[in-house]
Write a protein that binds this DNA or RNA. Structure first.
Lengths: 343, 343
DNA sequence: GGAATCCTCCAAAGCGCTTTGGATACCTGT
DNA sequence: ACAGGTATCCAAAGCGCTTTGGAGGATTCC
């Protein structure tokens, strides 16, 4: 059943050279011939042998992945979702993964090992921090990479895909301001992560524009779990002047937030408005919340798939993708946002 | 810097054949010669080219992984932890992964594709269900595999690594019974998973042995998140005859359980005893709970690593590992367990 | 009409390893 | 001393692909 190049070539009465070239899009092959080849591929189900290609080209046809482990719940549900997107796309192109579980303080060594092994053509990077040290490292190792997110500070001269987090939270905050909210809290991701900083900045920009003072006490940073969402919200509610609206960096956080609000006997969208960033986790849909959640939406899985696409295209140097992309998150208004109470 | 076989052979004044054989443990090579070869490998840092090996041997040197996604929070923190162990070990042996994100209802097709692709030598399998259909499928595809956990029902003639969950929860329940508890609740994983069923069975065995009736209302099945732990515990506490002890299938569940107990103003280990199964998640240590948690401990990461070891050994047919392993979880008694109240 | 150019295609040489099918020398036992 | 082992080693043939360096014919240009 499984044919190889040689057999395919014989079948077509062509040389392996020509068939190979036809398949790899080289110009020196007649259009009609190429069509015949492609047809034959379809009927025979020919699939090039990756091992042979690896040997002949020196390419690895696989991408490196540093998997955050240990301290911090980074290796959380968000990572899995992202990974799913990456993997799905990689599978289509028959690319493998080299998964490198690594503690944050060991990442440099991990990258060096990875680059030296020659086992990967490119590397994927996420959880960007401010002045992220990994970027210069990867540059110096001269191994292609694409970053999810982007660093804060330092030159912005590397390939990335990021969501415009500043904008997303600016938009969300603005909606709340227009609804008359003045005290807006933020339950954010870990402070050392760039996206957290940008989201906070988004909120602050909106407040500033509105001529409002920003209260640092209304911003919490933590791991993005249900648990912390609950605790943060509880502590906000215990203040003498609780916020009338809250922004959450994840629907996972929102889960806890909602619980705390319910428990306090308050009404979501009435007494307190809630907006969460929605990474489109399949198991946590904002529309399924008891009070459907207003969100800033941007699919994490889609981002994973897109990065895989770009990574693979650059390895095969096919296709032409922008090196830097900033996705705009969509503000989806649902029932969890309403006018500020007493207005 | 990087030498290849040919250069290494020249350097040693040997043929490639001999060097190759020395490295791969063939008998027809002099002990002294082998030592010289191994020495040379060390000094030159020779690493065989995987692509060439793949081509020559037809082996893929990679293992297939079906990554549970979509509905159900299966793709949770536990999976990540397991994966980390697997990856760590794979890395040591320069094995790659083929990650197949797949919805449960699509798994069969996924396996077929995987097996047909010839891209993997073996497959890893987890989240066993009762009469799990994937086992016969994989057998019929005649691709080596190792299962984490084991099915319930059907022949037990496949390679697996499992924790003796029945035993673990039997042990835990017995401890509670000895402490005088009679009403023991169980907050378990999803009902369709084999390990959940076994854990329940462990509890029931202990109760039975103690001559106690088992109350079905005291067993909850759900996704293992903080959230559900909290809800379950709350509902238990609202009963007219609340349990005096509770078993949790994960420390993640215990997180919610602890919160519910605290909130009810009850004392852990005094009013209510808690035992959780500890998968040794680095970010959730039972000793760090406000009241240190009594647990049945078995490292998920270690299990991942062990399965990788076995998978790889079987692919390389090196080493001799048991085909079926049943690990015993260790009962670690801490402060969350105490005598039943009023005794 | 002959040289210069294209357009297509091909033979063959690798890529770096494993493995087959012997060689060669050294021991056996008789 | 000789047939038959035994222990070591080697040359060479792949594995299935890419890529170099042409070849052959058709076309174009003066």
């Amino acid at each position: 059943m499984a044919v190889n190049l040689k057999q395919l070539a014989e079948l077509l009465g062509l040389s392996q050279t020509t068939v190979s070239r036809a398949l790899n899009g080289y110009p020196e092959v007649n259009a009609e011939t190429r069509r015949r080849v492609l047809d034959a591929v379809r009927t025979t189900g020919y699939r090039p042998n990756r091992a042979a290609q690896r040997l002949a080209t020196g390419k690895a046809y696989s991408i490196g992945l540093v998997m955050p482990i240990a301290s911090g719940i980074d290796s959380d549900i968000h990572f899995g979702e992202f990974l799913a997107g990456l993997a799905e796309e990689a599978l289509k192109h028959d690319f493998h993964f080299v998964l490198n579980p690594s503690a944050p303080d060991d990442e440099e060594a991990t990258f060096r090992r990875l680059a030296a092994s020659g086992n990967v053509d490119a590397v994927f990077l996420a959880y960007m921090r401010r002045n992220d040290p990994r970027i210069p490292i990867l540059k110096s190792l001269s191994i292609p990479f694409v970053v999810h997110g982007r660093s804060i500070g330092g030159p912005r001269d590397y390939p990335f895909l990021d969501v415009d987090n500043t904008r997303a939270f600016y938009d969300a905050a603005k909606l709340l301001l227009q609804l008359g909210h003045h005290r807006i809290a933020l339950i954010n991701g870990p402070e050392y992560l760039a996206f957290s900083l940008r989201r906070k900045k988004g909120l602050m920009l909106a407040l500033e524009e509105w001529g409002l003072h920003h209260d640092e006490a209304l911003v919490h940073h933590s791991v993005m779990t249900d648990e912390y969402g609950y605790r943060s919200m509880q502590s906000f509610l215990q203040r003498p002047d609780p916020p009338t609206a809250v922004l959450c960096s994840s629907t996972v956080l929102a889960l806890g937030v909602v619980r705390a609000i319910n428990q306090a006997g308050l009404g979501i969208g009435r007494d307190i408005s809630v907006i969460a960033h929605d990474d489109v986790l399949p198991m946590l849909k904002p529309e399924n919340f008891s009070v459907p959640l207003t969100t800033t939406r941007s699919s994490l899985r889609a981002a994973g798939a897109r990065i895989a696409t770009r990574l693979i295209a650059s390895i095969l140097n096919r296709g032409d993708y922008p090196q830097q992309e900033l996705w705009r998150a969509e503000l989806v208004v649902r029932a969890s946002t309403g006018s500020a109470p007493g207005r």
